[in-house]
Design a protein around this nucleic acid. Structure first.
Lengths: 140, 140
DNA sequence: TTTATCTGTAATTAATATAATTACATTATT
DNA sequence: AATAATGTAATTATATTAATTACAGATAAA
């Protein structure tokens, strides 16, 4: 699970709480990151048709669906992210390491199984339900 | 899930298939990595009392329990690893980003919940059962 | 008791993945 | 035409992880 996921969820909750056009600059201030990173994440959400964009002056982002209709599995998929992964920075094992290759395959399958479990759970959590847990105190 | 976990599982399966003292050098060849990395991982397994060590000449590692009695949850815990984590290299958000901090907490809780799910599943998988899926063809 | 061979572990370096930044093209409104 | 927004590529910086090096400590055999 990458920071992109956190950024995406934050942005979606924010958009839900502020039903208007919101700029990447404003989002980045709330999220505590930079506008370009936000835009890259939002671009993926747009491609998944979770949000829409208005370019040009007075532009920004807005939700395309109700917050209750956006679940976390969908968000994670939009970012091409997963809950469970090998996260290993190992260089590829040479082809003479037969057992190591089998083991790698076995572990990849295991990760897939575990991720499936997680995705089921994520499907039951929506931006709407998360919004209830967030107290928006910021004035901007 | 780090490479350490893969290395640990591989080593445990190997020890199960070769019930004798096995050196870190031999393990590293099967795993396709270096002996020092293997030793560091094995050191953690030893502290968790999954394997034991014989130092000095003709030394090496051997299993302390039957392979059927070693489940993957226990292995992962021995390495202080987890199945689900934020894996985010973000610098800490400043304390004036109230919503970002709440969001981070929310996501950490979510990760914990997802990880608990995974750990349940990992508890049902043993080194013994995994060994059945691995065809040892290597001669050394 | 000396030597050889193993583990234990710390310290360093290298590689990799990720986030942050910069820059600029594109779009839309005034 | 000018302004203010997104879109996106390219680069740089940072953090994490793996690999390597080095050597101390332990054990057994000669």
């Amino acid at each position: 699970m990458k920071a992109e996921f956190l950024v995406a969820v934050h942005a979606l909750v924010y958009l839900n709480k502020h039903p208007q056009l919101i700029t990447s600059d404003r989002l980045s201030k709330s999220i505590c990151t930079n506008p370009a990173f936000v835009r890259r994440v939002m671009s993926k959400l747009r491609q998944a048709e979770l949000v829409a964009t208005k370019e040009g002056i007075d532009g920004g982002y807005y939700l395309l669906r109700s917050a209750a209709a956006i679940d976390l599995r969908t968000v994670m998929k939009a970012l091409d992210d997963s809950a469970v992964s090998l996260a290993s920075q190992r260089s590829d094992v040479s082809s003479d390491c037969l057992m190591a290759q089998q083991m790698k395959q076995l572990m990849e399958n295991l990760c897939q199984d575990l991720d499936d479990l997680c995705q089921q759970k994520l499907q039951g959590i929506t931006i709407g339900s998360l919004s209830l847990s967030i107290n928006e105190k910021e004035t901007f």
